[in-house]
Amino acid sequence: MVRIGEGGERFEGVREVAVLRGGGLGDLMFAMPAIEALAAAYPDARLTLLGTPAAAALLDGRSDAVDAVEELPVVPGVRDAGDGAPTAEDFFERLHGRFDLAVQLHGGGRNSNPFLLRLGARHTVGTATEDAEVLERWVRYVYYQHEVLRGLEVAALAGAEPVTLDPRLAVTDDERAAVRARFGVTRHLVAMHPGATDPRRRWSPEHFAAVAIARLRAGDDVVVVGDDSDRPATDRITAAVQDALGSTERLHDVVGSLPLRELPAVLGAADVMVGDDSGPRHLALAVGTRTVGVFWFGNVINAGPLDRGRHRVLMSFVTRCPVCGIDVTQVGWTAERCEHDPSYVDHVTPEQVLADVEDLLRTAPRR
């Protein structure tokens, strides 16, 4: 038996399982190994993810572990916003008493544990900070822990053993071929995402542009992905490529125009993906694409890839805010946060990233 943490025995008579995991794309990817473990431990049960419409779009046809997605209502600390979201009253009226087991993979439990308990499930498991209401079986939430392992430690409370340590979403060879044909790729396809929710985790557009220019000069195609918030950075990358090469012919900009359900296929078609510590980089890992990630060193503990044959991590070791000097290693809900948002990761150079991109391309097996 392989188990992370102390764990517990499997519950009897479980036919309906709910897993609470809202948040962004990366949050969902971190939860997927725990979800797969629960699905394997309770093969006769129906597993419902309590998440966002984005989760439903991404998982449709790409994971056998999740049977249904129920959209979360807007509740502080569980989901901050969402046009057209169900009301809390409607959500709990429909779902109360349905589940035999409810699993909390959503943070430290201050808000998510009371939310989970309102479902009226027979059994509950999850994490808890010192000021959170505890569930039937629980483990202490400590900030510095890899999110995948945290989720697996929670799943172990319900008797679930790991199936995988990496998130996994299916992308077919036909999908990959269609994307490469769409872009006219004849050599390598390099994907990029020049964004992150926290501006302190963002590598500068000029650094991304330097990598794009080098790979375009080598004969590769480059595709830039992201949402509307990534438009300013992408425009700077495009302008730099135009200035350096006189053309953006093989630079494919799908920022803000690619439907979310198509993002896995685009990332899956890439030979390597370059990104910040952000959702698309975590998704690229899940669809089997090699990645080069630019990370603040503290985030590597919680979010870094676990192997180095397929995934490379370049770290910035900033310990104090470059503007005011406050200690930035103390993180989490109770940590002091200054108002400054400089990049913590721009010490990483394009040359470092390019060296890892080239090595991953050189050592990759033939498709």
Rank of each mutant, 00 (worst) to 15 (best):
V2T: 06
R3V: 15
F11P: 04
E12T: 10
V14T: 10
V17L: 14
G23Y: 11
G24H: 13
L25R: 03
P33T: 07
A41N: 12
A45Q: 08
L47M: 12
L49P: 01
L50F: 15
G51R: 03
A54R: 01
A54I: 01
A55Y: 02
L58H: 04
R62A: 00
R62K: 03
D67G: 14
D67R: 02
A68C: 08
V69W: 02
E71R: 09
L72H: 06
V74H: 08
D80E: 13
A81R: 05
A85F: 14
E89W: 15
E89M: 09
D90G: 14
D90Q: 12
R94I: 07
R94K: 13
L95G: 08
L95Y: 06
H96E: 09
R98V: 10
Q104D: 15
L105Y: 03
G108F: 02
R110N: 09
G120H: 01
H123G: 04
T127M: 15
T129N: 13
T129S: 08
E133H: 00
E133I: 15
E136M: 12
W138T: 15
L149E: 14
R150P: 06
G151V: 10
L152R: 12
E153F: 01
E153R: 15
E153A: 13
L157H: 04
L157T: 08
A158D: 13
G159S: 04
P167K: 01
P167Y: 14
L169F: 10
V171G: 12
D173E: 15
E175S: 11
E175L: 05
E175D: 08
F183M: 07
H188A: 10
V190P: 02
V190G: 02
A191Q: 07
H193D: 09
P194R: 00
T197V: 07
T197S: 06
D198Y: 13
R200D: 11
R201M: 10
P205Q: 11
E206W: 04
A210R: 13
V211C: 13
L216N: 05
D220T: 11
V222S: 00
G226A: 08
S229T: 15
S229C: 03
R231W: 05
R231A: 12
R231K: 11
P232S: 02
T234C: 00
V241R: 05
L245R: 02
R250Y: 02
S257G: 14
V266W: 13
V266K: 00
L267Y: 03
G268A: 12
A269Q: 10
V272D: 07
M273Y: 11
V274N: 08
P280Q: 09
R281E: 10
H282C: 09
L283E: 10
A284P: 12
G288Y: 14
W296E: 09
F297M: 02
N299V: 01
N302Y: 02
L314K: 05
L314I: 07
F317C: 00
C321D: 05
V323C: 11
V323Y: 15
G325L: 04
G325K: 10
Q330C: 06
Q330T: 12
G332E: 03
G332L: 03
E339K: 14
H340A: 07
D341P: 00
D341G: 01
S343V: 09
V345C: 05
D346G: 05
H347Q: 09
A355I: 03
D356P: 01
E358A: 15
R362V: 03
R362K: 10
T363A: 08
T363C: 00
R366V: 04
R367Y: 04
